[in-house]
């Protein structure tokens, strides 16, 4: 009786379970290739087991430490500025009295968020090219043209800045929503006590946003090893590999260009193993501090 009643529920789940089983659990099982001398013709089951040799190989690759450092540096910078800039923007926007102006700014800032890195990358390369508008603008101040995209000094800055630029609208709107939900009585009371706008922002608005700031911080912790694969892939070039190559781009080139599937999968597993700890930790902290739950 009970089973019959629940049968439709099981049936509904079949497509989702199948897709997840094949394309999410399949690759998880496929990770065994990191311990094999993997040969595509033999597959996961018949390739020869070689223990930790792939790991030894990749950890001794000359670029590996640099790649690890690049990944952490780029993503930590993206998290810090990706949080601070929208926070500042939200606080400043909150001081604007005219609603139409507020809406106009909000809409404009949101634009890059909706576009792909294929499009935005094209725009970046156009803007920062030798004959592009950025160099034209700089030449007005007597600065010689700079090859931004092929400069190890500039490239990472551009990567971080353009990522902040793309994501700004999203976090800003979350912050604005948090500001709106702060009790208006608090501001009135502060007014009576003679607190100016600056003090109000410092002592009411910021503390009122603390929980959402902590939440966004903790949730971004899980992505520390994702430095923005598709952005870097579209913008980088061999000249800036030294500073811009991150784990994902390294795995991509090693695995799919050099066809070294198993060593590439070994780096992938290394990354997944650290990420699973970070993601679990971030969800745990988000739950502890902000009562955030996914399910």
């Amino acid at each position: 009786m009970k089973l019959k009643k629940e049968l439709p529920l099981h049936l509904m789940l079949i497509p989702g379970v199948l897709v997840t089983l094949i394309y999410a659990y399949g690759p998880m099982f496929g990770i065994v290739m990191a311990f094999q001398k993997f040969q595509p013709a033999l597959g996961f089951l018949k390739s020869k087991w070689i223990g930790l040799k792939n790991f030894e190989y990749v950890f001794h690759l000359p670029d590996f430490n640099q790649v690890l450092w690049n990944t952490t540096f780029i993503s930590v910078m993206k998290i810090v500025f990706g949080l601070a800039v929208p926070l500042l923007m939200a606080l400043l926007l909150n001081e604007v009295a005219k609603n139409w102006f507020k809406r106009m700014i909000q809409t404009s800032i949101f634009l890059p968020f909706f576009l792909s890195w294929a499009v935005l990358g094209g725009i970046m390369i156009e803007l920062f090219s030798l004959k592009g508008p950025v160099n034209a603008l700089l030449s007005l101040f007597g600065v010689d043209p700079i090859m931004f995209m092929a400069s190890n000094n500039w490239f990472v800055t551009i990567i971080i800045a353009s990522d902040v630029w793309k994501g700004m609208g999203y976090n800003m709107i979350i912050f604005l929503a948090a500001i709106v939900s702060i009790n208006a009585n608090l501001y009135e009371a502060a007014e009576v006590d003679g607190a100016g706008r600056w003090k109000q922002a410092l002592h009411i608005t910021l503390p009122g946003m603390a929980s959402i700031i902590i939440l966004i911080c903790t949730l971004s912790l899980g992505g520390v090893l994702n430095a923005g694969f598709d952005q870097i892939l579209i913008l980088y070039n061999p000249i800036v590999y030294e500073k811009a190559d991150v784990i994902d781009t390294f795995v991509y080139r090693l695995g799919l260009f050099d066809q070294q599937y198993a060593p590439a999968a070994a780096i992938g597993l290394f990354k997944s193993a650290i990420s699973v700890v970070l993601v679990s930790l971030s969800y745990y902290l988000a739950y502890r501090f902000s009562n955030y739950r996914i399910f």
Partner: peptide, 24 residues
């Protein structure tokens, strides 16, 4: 079922094994 799906939000096979599975 919840656990079955939730695990995929924490752990993934990564680029190369996924590529191989799609190919296979």
């Amino acid at each position: 079922y919840v656990w079955f799906f939730a695990i995929t939000m924490f752990f993934g096979g990564g680029l190369i094994p996924t590529y191989i599975v799609v190919k296979e």
